[in-house]
Computed example of a mutant assay.
Amino acid sequence: MKDIAKRFPENPLLSPSDIPPSHKDLQIACILNPGVFQFDNKTWMILRVAERPEQKKDAISFPILTETSSEVIEISKNDPELDYTDARVINYKGADYLTTLSHLRLVCSDDGIKFYEPENYPLLIGQGIFESFGIEDCRVSYIEGIYYLTYTAVSPNGVAVGLRTTGDWKNFQSHGIILPPHNKDCAIFEEKINGMFYALHRPSSVAIGGNFIWIASSPDGIHWGNHQCIVKTRKGLWDSARVGAGASPIKTDKGWLSIYHGANENHQYCLGAFLMDLENPTKVIARTHEPIMMPIEEYELSGFFGNVVFTNGHIMHPDKNTVTIYYGASDEFVCGAEFSIKEIFSLLQYS
């Protein structure tokens, strides 16, 4: 396998200790999977910040949102009805819970490397019964003067896609759930095609089917239809268990280029790429056989959930024909890497 990522020597760019928790009774377990955009002549990230109380030796404790505030649930590790073998999700008395509660937080940078929290910008937290387990992994698309924020909304009702929009990053309009459970990894194209919005998304099936990338279209960016499955997992390869879209596809003269994540049965997450037709993005015309990035550095191999590189945000540099991706490493750190678009294209295999 060939890893063509040029990682920032400053990695990790952000660690849990670099930002304060949202509440004095919580600790930040991990910061990860940032959406990325440019605003006010700066590079911005909207981080997923996952928090939980300080953990006791003999118990698991985690916060959830209620209609009016939040509460902490604590369960003894000796309880026979508790399964906590996964660092991310536990099962108790037949119900699933997340081990952390995530919100979205803004940081910005003048150089794309050193990030800090700006003053007077809000945290984005879960709202209502469909976001009571938090909101995660935001993608940002800038379309006709409006920023579209698609994110994973988690609750006992399932995992869904929520949408908020803003023009100034201080005032937000919530559009609720735009894709019902089970769905995530939604990335809206940053340009309409034949007058329609397009988006990649990832519905999942627990029985027939799998964790595949789909595409949909919309007249307004809120109501979606014409769903089609365009990228599937591949048995025996690095993306055999699940695939999901990264950030908004990149428009090139050869087609719409998407950098996506794939995982195998051992939960190793790598990055690959595929290319869609410019006029008809439901048609995938090329895909990398091998990953373009895989976890090889210590901060990618060890962490809250190791052996993971995962991106949902990037910045294009047309003058250099490169793209800078910002990515979550081992579900704990935020890092950066640069790719040559030409080199990615050299690895695409056309169908």
Rank of each mutant, 00 (worst) to 15 (best):
G35V: 06
E136I: 06
I213H: 00
A5R: 04
D277R: 03
D79R: 07
N171G: 00
F310S: 07
A29G: 13
L98R: 15
G158W: 00
Y327V: 09
D40S: 13
K251R: 15
K232I: 00
I215H: 07
G176V: 11
T324P: 00
F310Y: 14
G167T: 15
D239T: 05
E191D: 11
C108P: 06
V72L: 04
P122S: 06
R88A: 13
I259C: 07
I75V: 13
A5I: 02
G255R: 08
T288D: 03
G303N: 09
A329G: 13
I296N: 06
L98G: 11
G167C: 03
I193Y: 13
I341A: 05
S22E: 08
F197E: 03
I113R: 09
E190I: 03
I285P: 10
P181H: 07
W44H: 12
F339R: 11
I250H: 05
L123C: 01
G128Y: 11
L275S: 05
G209I: 08
A87P: 15
S218P: 04
N11A: 08
G128F: 12
K6R: 13
S76W: 02
I19Y: 05
Q228M: 08
G336M: 07
P219G: 10
E290W: 06
E67V: 04
I222N: 12
S141M: 00
T166V: 10
C186P: 00
I60F: 01
E81N: 15
P53I: 03
S330H: 06
S302T: 12
I46A: 15
F189H: 06
Y198E: 05
V323T: 07
S340F: 01
I325D: 03
G162W: 05
I292M: 08
G210H: 02
I188K: 02
Y84W: 10
M45V: 07
I222D: 10
A329I: 08
Y142R: 04
L271P: 00
A59P: 00
S76I: 02
I178N: 11
I143H: 07
R88M: 14
D220G: 06
S330C: 09
Q173K: 15
G306K: 01
W238S: 08
G210P: 03
I259A: 06
S351Y: 12
L237R: 10
F274T: 03
G328E: 04
A207I: 13
Q173N: 14
T100I: 01
G303I: 08
L82T: 11
Q127T: 08
P203G: 03
M276N: 02
F133I: 04
W214T: 11
A199H: 01
A245M: 06
A245Y: 00
A241P: 01
V89F: 08
G126E: 02
L179T: 12
P20T: 04
T282Q: 10
S346P: 04
S340G: 10
R88K: 13
Y260P: 09
L275D: 07
L101Q: 07
G158P: 12
K42Q: 14
C108I: 01
D3T: 04
D58P: 05
S218C: 09
K283E: 12
I213M: 15
P63M: 08
K24D: 15
L124M: 11
A245K: 01
S132Y: 04
E298H: 12
L348D: 07
Y148M: 06
R52H: 13
G145T: 01
M196R: 15
L124K: 05
